[in-house]
Design a protein around this nucleic acid. Structure first.
Length: 289
DNA sequence: ATGATTTGACCTAT
DNA sequence: ATAGGTCAAATCAT
């Protein structure tokens, strides 16, 4: 009897561990596809096939996202234990707490204690985290409004809000934090980016689509003299570099690459921006094979 | 001059 | 009491 319990528990645990490694692998695949997309799309910029290729990239990411969601759902059903759900985040990261929208909604459902002020801590119930070597180019314009050292982490967390918060009341924010154990196999720095809230703004240059629409071609640097947050503009902006890298020189070349959210935090259905600036191409060239 | 970033203070959830 | 999120004055960059 006890034997059986033991066995089933072992099975459940090994299955959970299988799930986790599967999820991890999928996340890694997504990250690689995202990076590959950032390299390929700019090259195809003027090519009429670029849209098709972009769509294919997106489909691949969609597929893996769905696979990941299935895995997670399955795991949470079959091997749920009190502390398991902390591990079930898409990117399998330790320091990002429970931030998936599903989790938060569940919590909210139970406690009905959603914070009324978005003022302090756990601001929105729709947040999405992702792990990326390229935290800054997500097609949106952000303004940094704070930086904070977080306990037990080497790197401080930077806080950004949408550039159009004042003029358009867009409530979207994000945090960016370099991971402590951030040099992966390819020695790229990894960042945890957490997006809170949905963009309700439209880009001023009109390049952007409606808030609920996809974010294709959101960033245009045509207004290069307007004060656009350097979080998604010039990687040679030294001030920004210092702020984000805490006195370190800007070393992460891949960070300059174009990327898009791997997990569709904003219901993106199409692809990363194709209207790359020269610095982006330059970054790609420097990125190397 | 204008707008972005920095950073210490403040506020609040835990 | 503490940690984390935001504010806002000072500073910096253009």
């Amino acid at each position: 009897m006890k034997h059986q319990q033991y066995n089933s528990r072992c099975l459940a645990e090994s299955s959970a561990s299988d799930h986790r490694s599967a999820v991890k692998e999928i996340a890694r695949g997504q990250s690689l596809v995202t990076q590959l997309r950032a390299i390929v799309l700019p090259v195809l910029q003027a090519d009429e096939r670029s849209e098709l290729v972009a769509q294919m990239f997106q489909n691949i990411l969609d597929c893996s996202s769905k696979a990941m969601a299935e895995l997670q759902m399955h795991q949470s059903r079959s091997t749920r234990r009190p502390h398991d759900d902390d591990d079930v985040l898409v990117d399998d990261k330790k320091r990002v707490k429970k931030i998936s929208s599903v989790d938060c909604k569940n919590e909210e459902g139970v406690t009905a204690a959603k914070p009324r002020h978005q003022h302090k801590r756990r601001r929105f119930d729709d947040s999405v985290s992702l792990e990326t070597p390229v935290p800054h180019y997500d097609g949106r314009q952000w303004r940094k409004y704070g930086q904070k050292h977080i306990n037990n982490t080497k790197h401080s967390r930077s806080y950004y809000r949408c550039t159009y918060r004042q003029e358009q009341g867009c409530k979207a924010t994000k945090t960016v934090q370099q991971q402590d154990d951030s040099s992966g196999a390819d020695h790229t720095l990894m960042y945890t980016v957490v997006y809170y809230g949905q963009h309700t703004c439209k880009d001023n240059d009109g390049a952007n689509s409606s808030p609920d629409d996809s974010e294709i071609n959101t960033r245009s640097s045509s207004d290069s003299h307007s004060s656009i947050s350097s979080t998604c503009t010039d990687p040679c902006d030294h001030q920004n570099q210092t702020s984000l890298h805490e006195d370190k020189p800007f070393v992460n070349k891949s960070e300059e690459l174009v990327t898009k959210d791997m997990y569709e935090p904003f219901e993106m259905t199409v692809f990363a921006p194709l209207d790359l600036d020269s610095w982006e191409l330059d970054a790609l060239l420097r990125f190397g094979p």
